[in-house]
Amino acid sequence: MTGTASALVFDHVDFSFGERPVLSDVSLQVAHGEFLALIGPNGGGKSTLVKLSLGLLKPDRGEVRVLGLTPAQARPRLGYVPQFATFRRDFPLSVHETVLHGRLGRSAWWRPLTPQDHEAATQAMAATDVQDLAPRPIASLSGGQLQRVLIARALATEPELLLLDEPTAHVDTRAEHDLFGLLARLRERMAIVMVSHDVGLVSRHVDRIACLNLTLTCHTAMPLAPGVLENLYGMPVRLIDHGDRAALEGVL
């Protein structure tokens, strides 16, 4: 662990793609064990913020610290679930092999897999309830199953910070509910930052919502005050509550 350092710190970060500013003076702190949702309109900079946290992009100004380190240094301790599968769905690989890829970077690449590697992969598959799928080729999975495999791959790294970029964009409502249940169990072990578009659902599960549209506004109080979303999206927005009040009270 890293003692008192925050899991994720953005300190007055600017970023632009060419002439187009994407993030302007963004400051953010995520504590260890905190579950933060990042919402905002498309093109508002959510994915950019995730990519800056991973060190895939470099800020024009300001500083990003992850677990008290630079993003590149912290990478072995980060878990990342991409928005779109960045691979071919028909690649000849089993679920088990895919999850084991999460163990890369834990030790030197030329070392053979250790029993701990297999144990971590097994636990990650159990946590995301995909252990029955282990021998299946990834080509045979449904969208929701593949999403859980990708989360298992990220968990196999035993991360201290889990970054998820719209993990529910391509799954149905049922899979979405399951995902929040899973994340609620994981948050005792790690900080979670999740990009989402489903404001109604996240507001009932997370500690804090950060609204991003070029600049950042954080809201600790749940549910969101009236008018906040309208300001963010620039149009009337209605929160759709999917029921399930027990989950709300259990988390908040």
Partner: peptide
């Protein structure tokens, strides 16, 4: 399989 993920794993 997944160049971006492999790069993130160092």
């Amino acid at each position: 399989f997944d160049e971006e993920f492999a790069r993130l794993r160092g």
